[in-house]
Nucleic acid binder design. Structure first.
Lengths: 234, 234
DNA sequence: TAGACTAAGGCACTCAGTGCCATGCTACTA
DNA sequence: TAGTAGCATGGCACTGAGTGCCTTAGTCTA
């Protein structure tokens, strides 16, 4: 059992190495299997598709995320929990930064792999939405569906952005603090809207002459917005 | 040219009908081609993959979205423009609600198609982010990357939610008002944060102040001209 | 030692997707 | 009218992913 038990790891490693060397598309499953010292048929016992051998194990991670959310206390703020759940995904990468960077290198070059990973990411997002909906009393649920979609997508976007930035830099440090800072900011910005309704309406300026005082770097569209927001002249 | 010019439409229609009748996976390209009265080889001249025959033409739509954003005036608020761009995508579905509903029925049942569409959607999101980044002065860009990722994902999530809700209901009315209401709410909630700058707010862009004194009726483009003509700061 | 379970190998098959060449139709031109 | 360039299509053969089925070998247990 010692020699062959890690067929899965061998296959993953071979898939990444061969893809880095010759490109993912140009690498056949036969070659990967041969490099790992197993039969082609065995490859498909461990992976549903060629792509799965290069990408991290999102199936297992998604199961962890779901279990975490299922076990969560109703006393914790749902948004915070979603953030923690996203951290679980991040942990998967952080556990083996070297492999993560190698994977990223392959994925970056192959559209098919990028799309595969996007699809995987979207499954986490669905889990977030499901949890947020469930955390809301049934009577409120419909009024908050859009909020939950946006919140889940914001958390996912934050996760992806932090992760990619970190991987692109070669995974030089601990991602966790990076993510903690980013997610804190996003959640802070999102929470008021998620928990209630709308923000303020802008006040209204003067008459026939307009004075704009603004920093030099103010973008044009912002000036335009202010000007357009002024009431029409008589 | 009259008999065969619409091979593409015939193929799309056949692909959807056959997929609805027997399932997408169980339908082979040979069957679709035969039903459309063309050769199998012709199918792959019109579609890159079997999935493309069932899904709407995201390639063309993405091109429209990019063109729209490229042609956008810098006087419009970027967030509003992203919202308008998302509306272009929605229009593609709204143009032919019946087909959209039939497609949705197929997609809903086939995970592979769902993922294919998610990947397509993500390309719009990338275009949004690219535009938001470009709309920002280079010096600010890095401070706003996360904001832009979140904003783009929020717009995409809003679009997807409105679209899916509408399709699930059988496309009973005009989607546009539904989307307009949803996107207005989301953008209103997002705008203050998006403009607030990054973590650790620099709190220091002053120094270089611009004062514009102009009649109320001054056209925006003229203001823009003056602003752009101002000498760069040191 | 027998029997059960599990991981793996081997093989044949379907089907998506591609490359190559031939064919037929249209339009423009000498 | 013939020639020809261009383009959409057809036909064919080939690669490679993914699956079903049966066999083999190693391991665990009674």
């Amino acid at each position: 059992m010692s020699g062959r038990r890690d067929a899965r790891r061998e296959l993953m490693s071979a898939a990444i190495s061969l893809s880095l060397a010759h490109g993912f598309e140009a690498t056949t499953v036969d070659e990967i299997a041969a490099a790992a010292g197993v039969a082609r048929r065995t490859f498909f016992r461990h992976f549903r598709a060629k792509e799965d051998a290069v990408l991290p194990d999102h199936d297992a991670c998604l199961a962890r995320v779901r279990a975490f959310l299922d076990a969560a206390s109703p006393l914790d703020a749902p948004l915070q929990l979603i953030g923690r759940a996203a951290e679980l995904v991040l942990d998967m990468y952080a556990e083996d930064p070297e492999t993560a960077v190698r994977r990223y290198e392959v994925i970056r070059q192959v559209p098919a792999l990028r799309e595969w990973e996007i699809a995987a990411t979207s499954r986490y997002q669905r889990a977030f939405v499901t949890y947020l909906n469930a955390s809301r009393p049934a009577a409120d649920r419909d009024r908050f569906r859009l909020h939950h979609e946006v919140a889940a997508s914001a958390v996912a976007a934050t996760h992806n952005h932090v992760l990619r930035t970190w991987l692109r830099a070669g995974a030089p440090d601990d991602v966790r603090p990076r993510f903690a800072a980013a997610i804190a900011e996003v959640l802070t910005a999102l929470t008021p809207w998620l928990e209630s309704g709308s923000p303020a309406a802008p006040a209204t300026p003067p008459d026939d002459i307009m004075i704009i005082l603004a920093p030099r770097t103010t973008p044009l569209w912002k000036l335009a917005e202010h000007i357009n927001a002024a009431p029409p002249q008589p």
